[in-house]
Computed example of a mutant assay.
Amino acid sequence: MKFLKLLICLLLAVQGLAQPHGKDSNFVSRHRPGFFWYNTGWRPAKVGKLRKYDRLILDVTYNQLMMSGSVKQHTARSFGCNVNTMWDIPITNGNTVSLGIGLAYKFQKTGPKGLFFRDTSARYTHFYADSGYTDYRKNTFGNHMLAIPVEFRFRTPRWQHFKVHVGASVGYRLQTFQKLWEENKHRPIKDKDLPDVNGLVYGVHLRVGIRNLALFADYTLAPQFKSSNSSKINSLAFGLSLSIF
């Protein structure tokens, strides 16, 4: 809750810096929004061209493993990021409703208080909270993923607009890893060969914010492991989104 309150305060504090004031809210801008407000590419923007938004989005996330029973985590080791390159396709004349589609890279890392182990057959993976293996001082668990997000975008017509993005994504899990730092050793042991990892990734997400900044939530519906014999794990990510342009 403290982290969520901090994000809300940050959003309210800096949203006023997202763009210049004093513009007619119905004026069709010749410039592109965001940090690259005056960047129009190789050629000047056409007069009357609709503004487009949220084409490069960075998400900073706190990640939580979801399974039956609570999973305690080290907060400082449970942060990740997403990089989204998107097309903004207007549906209405004023671009108050649009379709976003693109390509996203997702890095989700967590610091669970427990370890993942192979079973005796080396075919399935199980999570043991607070396991008896105590010869390590810290551990992390994470995923690298590529996904295709598709989202419906709703905006108010004003220059400094309020926005809601409702979307879903499907993609591929590039790598799943577990890192262990043993006592008195500086280099971690990295395990990238946990069995039964589900390569297919799909989920739903939501952004709610003002202009360049938004609160973000993403729930991965696809289980981390394929078999019912492995631990049943999904993931939840929430944080702050920044639209570069």
Rank of each mutant, 00 (worst) to 15 (best):
F152T: 05
Y62I: 02
N93F: 10
H74A: 12
Y53N: 08
V47S: 13
S169T: 00
Q224E: 14
T120S: 15
L174I: 14
R155E: 07
K106V: 05
S228E: 07
N39D: 14
S98C: 03
R55S: 10
T125L: 05
M1V: 14
N234I: 08
R187M: 05
I57V: 15
R32L: 10
L17V: 05
G111F: 04
D135V: 04
K2Y: 12
Q175F: 01
K23Y: 14
G203P: 01
T110F: 02
Y38N: 05
L58A: 09
T85D: 03
D59G: 04
A18K: 03
W181F: 13
P90W: 06
F225V: 11
M1Q: 13
T110M: 15
I244W: 12
T156Y: 09
V208Y: 03
T140V: 13
K226V: 10
L115Q: 07
K192N: 15
K179F: 01
F238V: 05
K192D: 15
L221F: 07
L236I: 07
L65V: 13
G94Y: 06
L242G: 03
L206P: 03
V208D: 00
Y128E: 14
L12P: 01
N229L: 14
D130G: 11
S235G: 07
L58V: 15
V150Y: 01
I91V: 15
S241E: 06
T61S: 05
G203K: 01
D191H: 12
V47Q: 13
S235P: 00
L12H: 01
K113D: 11
P188Q: 04
A217T: 15
Y219L: 03
H21S: 15
G80A: 11
S231F: 09
F116Y: 11
Y53A: 06
D119R: 05
I148K: 00
V14T: 12
S228K: 12
T220E: 10
G114T: 11
